[in-house]
Design a protein around this nucleic acid. Structure first.
Length: 746
DNA sequence: CGTTGATCAATTTTT
DNA sequence: TTGATCAACG
């Protein structure tokens, strides 16, 4: 009966069996965290005989939720996970809110605004409040509001606590923003966590009903919960106290998004009589890799002390790759991959290349392509963020919820139907004056005193939407979408453009259509437009499981959490890149946890690489090796030559050179090793131009690739920001940035 | 009303 | 370097 529990080690089993009361499992990297949580659920169902629908398991990604379901089905008989509540915080609460949100004055067909939508709403609020984005950047306001929401700080409290100018103004925007969301009958991502709290506080009977229903609450990646999530979990578990959380404080890497590691550190105070289990037996990595991880994380103050214990052999030392610049770095990584692939038989899928920032992926990608190494970049532009997809989805949202002004504005002139900014502002005024939503204003366009051409265009638009609404009432998402494509001739318009981009967009739209069809097929009971929209609003590309294709994986370290690879390259190990500008000790600690995550992804081999110089914002910058390298025991790190770091003669101590541009106005510093020979046919980098730059003088005759011949009138500034005003024979006067102008002196 | 060119800014981003 | 945004044109 309890056969499956034999797969667990002692601590894991105890954690699984402690089914009653609060439990926290501190699960180090690779210690079988998912295993514990899935086995516990299986145990609850099989042995404790808890009905599956009384179990709620919350994760952070859809992928993790899917994985969990899959593994539970593997332990129990297939399909037994179907009535379990397993999902992300966001998707589970979105689903609950569809049933109960009318209690707090929303319509059940609320739209879910993604980050772009909410940003544009913030922008709109700021415009209405006459706040210039120069003194108060939209992004800052948006992130302050989001942080406030994640911390469950509502507008009144935010207003009270607002200190400086920015906070005070943000408080005003925040109030307006909340009001506008309501007018749009929309929730942003953060609302999906906050609204349940508001709902439960105002409706204790409902809360109690749910407390009894979700008798067993399990939360994965607890170190990443923010205050709102903490509160909602606390509310749900208040009655029965069966809250089970799993996490690793050392892998908390989302504090900048409001994740609060205190939730984990204070668990035992928050939940009286909480049991604590520590999983430190690692089943993933070699001892050397774990030694490296342990020695790095030891430098953090704020943590629960634990050291991972290896079960695998000692393994090989880490390899430190030092390269002249980021291009060489990428080439070296490519060389190692090819060599390990050819001589040691590693599949391409065994390799992962990590980087701190997305910008670093470009060179790596170039080099992989040149070397014919199959690769895949994770987390580039999401499918759902593509313009054409957002446009099509906006139609669907509007059909479901015609108060959704964001969506309306997206599609009112898509495909183009001659309704421009001017018409839209007139329409807005009309709506404002009549206290209507924009869509109502459109429906009553003939009363607005608009030009008849505009009235006609608006009527046509509302007829389209109304027809789609009728379809939505009876049909599936697929039906609505295909009718939309038909009525707007979307696909043929794109095909007519006949550019590669237009055809790609066309393909994407077809893909969306087939997704809608799949969705209806797989969820015959919940295939309404609302269900489809919820699912895709809360989906991301990170959910894509790695299929069996054989490629090298390129991703940011954030995206790598939860994954593992036999061979890992951590690139860009440089000061100010990794750790990325850490102004406060807490930030440095988070960067260190990120490094810890990177290290612990590796099973067998770990390479760390850095470049002495790297282009940043188009400028080559001198780089210093990351201090994180020094935190690893030098006995377990080798240079490419095979020497232990501990035996290496020189330690770079070039603090004085920090941040200095490689090619400034003065003579270029001598590189530590000879410059690589410029390959023929390769575009020369800016290294070739400094002499020209500094030698430009007024009166010189120059030649420009586009504007042709001209004479220098004036030289402004120096160095990288140098500009030059040139009178061209044919093109007239122009002021150009010297570094990009590519001028030839005649 | 839609296109072009200048200007400016630039982490990480589970949902 | 890229990309996003906005003013000035056609």
């Amino acid at each position: 009966m309890t056969d499956f529990l034999r797969d667990l080690n002692d601590v894991q089993r105890e954690a699984v069996l402690a089914t009653e009361g609060p439990v926290m499992v501190l699960a180090g990297a690779g210690s079988g965290k998912t295993r514990v949580i899935t086995y516990r659920i299986a145990h609850l169902i099989r042995n404790v005989e808890v009905p599956p629908n009384n179990i709620l398991a919350l994760t952070f990604t859809n992928k993790a939720a899917g994985e969990m379901r899959h593994r539970i089905d593997g332990i129990l008989r297939h399909g037994s996970s179907s009535s379990l509540w397993v999902g992300t915080f966001h998707s589970v609460f979105a689903r609950l809110l569809r049933s109960y949100i009318h209690l707090i004055g929303y319509d059940r067909n609320f739209s879910i605004f993604d980050a772009d939508d909410s940003k544009s709403l913030v922008k709109q609020c700021m415009q209405e409040l006459n706040l210039s984005p120069d003194s108060l950047p939209v992004n800052l306001v948006h992130s302050m509001i989001s942080k406030a929401k994640n911390g469950f700080v509502l507008p009144p409290e935010f207003h009270r606590n607002a200190g400086d100018y920015q906070q005070q103004k943000t408080a005003l925007v925040y109030e307006k923003y909340v009001q506008k969301l309501r007018d749009n009958n929309a929730l942003d991502f953060d609302d999906l966590l906050i609204k349940p709290i508001e709902l439960f506080s105002g409706h204790p009977a409902l809360l109690e009903q749910l407390q009894d229903y979700f008798r067993y609450l399990l939360i994965d990646e607890y170190q990443d919960t923010n205050r709102a999530q903490y509160l909602v979990a606390k509310m749900l578990s208040e009655k029965h106290h069966n809250i089970f959380v799993v996490g690793d404080d050392a892998q908390s890497i989302y504090s900048w998004r409001g994740a609060d590691i205190s939730n984990m550190l204070n668990f035992q105070e928050d939940y009286k009589d909480a049991k604590l289990f520590k999983l430190v037996d690692n089943y993933r990595s070699t001892r050397t890799i774990l030694d490296a991880a342990n020695s790095v994380i030891r430098n953090n103050q704020r943590q629960i002390k634990k050291e991972l214990v290896a079960n695998a052999g000692i393994g090989e030392p880490l390899t430190l790759i030092e390269a002249y610049n980021e291009r060489r770095e990428a080439e070296k990584v490519g060389d190692y991959i090819r060599q390990l692939h050819l001589s040691k038989g590693y599949h391409y899928r065994a390799f992962a290349i990590f980087y701190r920032t997305n910008a670093q992926s470009r060179v790596l990608e170039d080099v992989m392509r040149q070397n014919r190494i199959p690769y895949k970049i994770f987390g580039s532009v999401s499918f759902y963020k593509r313009k054409e997809i957002k446009d099509a989805v906006a139609y669907l949202r509007l059909v479901l919820n015609d108060r959704d002004g964001e969506s309306l504005l997206r599609v009112i002139n898509f495909p183009p139907r001659k309704i421009g900014d001017v018409s839209i502002s007139k329409l807005k005024e009309f709506a404002e004056a009549g206290g209507m939503s924009l869509y109502d204003a459109i429906r009553r366009a003939d009363e607005g005193g608009f030009q008849s051409r505009l009235v006609h265009a608006l009527k046509e638009f509302s007829t389209l939407v109304e027809t789609l609404k009728e379809k939505a009432a009876a049909g599936t998402a697929y039906d609505v979408l295909s009718l939309l494509y038909d009525m707007t001739s979307l696909l043929s318009l794109l095909q007519a453009e006949n550019t590669p981009e237009a055809l790609a967009r066309c393909e994407n739209l077809k893909e969306l259509l087939s997704m809608a069809r799949d969705f209806s097929d797989h969820n015959p009971l919940n295939s309404s437009l609302a269900d489809f929209l919820s699912t895709i609003s809360l989906a991301s590309d990170y959910d894509e499981s790695q299929d069996s294709d054989n490629y090298v994986s390129l991703m940011t370290i954030h995206a790598a959490k939860g994954l593992e690879f036999p061979v890992v390259f951590v690139t860009g190990m440089e000061e100010k890149l990794f750790p990325l500008n850490a102004y406060e000790p807490a930030e440095l600690e988070e960067e260190r946890r990120l490094f810890y995550v990177a290290i612990t992804r590796a099973r067998e081999k770990l390479f760390l690489s850095w470049a002495q110089s790297r282009y940043q914002f188009g400028q080559p910058q001198m780089c210093l090796r990351s201090t994180f390298i020094n935190e690893i025991d030098p006995d377990i790190v080798c240079t490419e030559g095979g020497r232990r770091l501990s035996e290496s003669p020189t330690k770079v101590s070039a603090k004085a050179m920090a941040g200095r541009p490689v090619f400034g106005s003065g003579p270029p510093p001598v590189p530590a090793r000879p410059m690589p020979v410029q390959r023929p046919g390769q575009p020369s980098s800016s290294a070739a131009t400094p002499q020209q730059k500094s030698s430009l003088r007024a009166g010189m005759k120059v030649h420009h690739a586009i504007f042709g011949p001209g004479v220098v009138i004036e030289v402004q500034g120096s160095g990288s920001k140098q500009k030059v005003k040139i009178g061209f024979r044919t093109a007239g006067e122009k002021t150009l940035m010297v570094q990009y102008a590519n001028l030839k002196i005649v």
